[in-house]
Design a protein around this nucleic acid. Sequence first.
DNA 1: GCGGCCGGTTCACAGAGCGTTCACCTATGG
DNA 2: CCATAGGTGAACGCTCTGTGAACCGGCCGC
Lengths: 226, 226
Amino acid sequence: MEPLLIYPDPPQAELARMLDLGGYSWKAVSDERAATSATPDDGWGGAIIAIGEDSETAWALLRAIRRADAPIEPLLLLVGGNRLDELELRDELYDDFCLDPFHPRELEARLRHLFWRAGAGAAPELVEYGSLILNLETYQAAIEGEPLDLTYMEYELLKFLAQHPGKVFTRETLLSRVWGYEYYGGARTVDVHIRRLRAKLGEEHANLISTVRSVGYRFGQSRWGV
Amino acid sequence: MEPLLIYPDPPQAELARMLDLGGYSWKAVSDERAATSATPDDGWGGAIIAIGEDSETAWALLRAIRRADAPIEPLLLLVGGNRLDELELRDELYDDFCLDPFHPRELEARLRHLFWRAGAGAAPELVEYGSLILNLETYQAAIEGEPLDLTYMEYELLKFLAQHPGKVFTRETLLSRVWGYEYYGGARTVDVHIRRLRAKLGEEHANLISTVRSVGYRFGQSRWGV
DNA sequence: GCGGCCGGTTCACAGAGCGTTCACCTATGG
DNA sequence: CCATAGGTGAACGCTCTGTGAACCGGCCGC
């Protein structure tokens, strides 16, 4: 997970200890310029801004963050009880706040909930293996960015295989897991679908699906490095 | 504004006083049944649930609320410091929480922020996708500036699809989400409406709705990024 | 009340896409 | 070198979807 942006620098010892204990990576900055220049390649994973004595500076930093091209989310404030009224009319500048001084347990719970909320909204259901991507919501597949035009059964079969990379499945297992438990048909059906999958994956990636003679098929590399 | 659902009944005096002073209308209930029967015509404006001694009952109530046809939002918990760990793995059951006993000012700030968030995120009256625009207030639709003359069901179907671009829906899902949960009719009904939608969208934009064979229909192109 | 219109649902049919099967060929290992 | 397993091409037939049209119920004006 990307590191958290912490303000000010240095943060209060309580906060630093709680973050370290909670396994969060973080970096403290002292102003907007420092925040910009220290931005990780993948952006910040979130921010915790303490509204201290010089609250105007903190608010200015928050406005800058929210205006930026890649707004940081989630954004949590640490605010003293005597500054609560400053939150009013600034709703757009934060996602949650925590009274300072804080209970470590409360702050931890708030962070967890914020990250859950951020993650729950966006993330589409994806199955990935190397450059292969299956989007389970849109029923689309792509390899190295190139969309694959798969039929329904091809998609289902590839999905099942890619969800268990490295594992070998017999034809019978595939028939029952992909086609359905009560399915009764020839085992060669699997062969044909595997063939078409290999063809559509392209010569370059056809070896993603390997044949295990006398057993069945395996997707991806074996765990033993064969 | 619609009244707030408060649990338990009666609420602690501090909470009642803060709500009254803050100008909130509210109604306390003692269990799920009371909550259902006391539901205002326009639904609840939100809920404040205190996790007390009998936390299991409160969690059950929350689960029922979130499962209901019209989930109550926003949902704020009052939770004692010694019960903080119960929040873990229940993220989907609340929007925010406040330590109990609470500062009236903090609770007020949290309520204000929650309502602000709910209002800010509340359905924009426009749904847009490419050159397609749906005006939810006036029930009008247009593509490339050309108004579309849609019937009620056509409009509802297009609205639902356009609100979830890229995602594939089965006919059954569409029937339950667009036509209504209890609807029981032929799945071919969906086909016919899709056909008329495509016709009215015009040859040029008919491909906005794509068929996913053996699955259902998808509106627009998938977004791999989001 | 009655007849026509409008919108939603259902039906029947046709066409195409796709899964399955079969026959034949190639690869592999004993 | 044989036996067996897997790859390949093609054909068959089912299932799903698109489409035209009929049906049905509600609404409105005459």
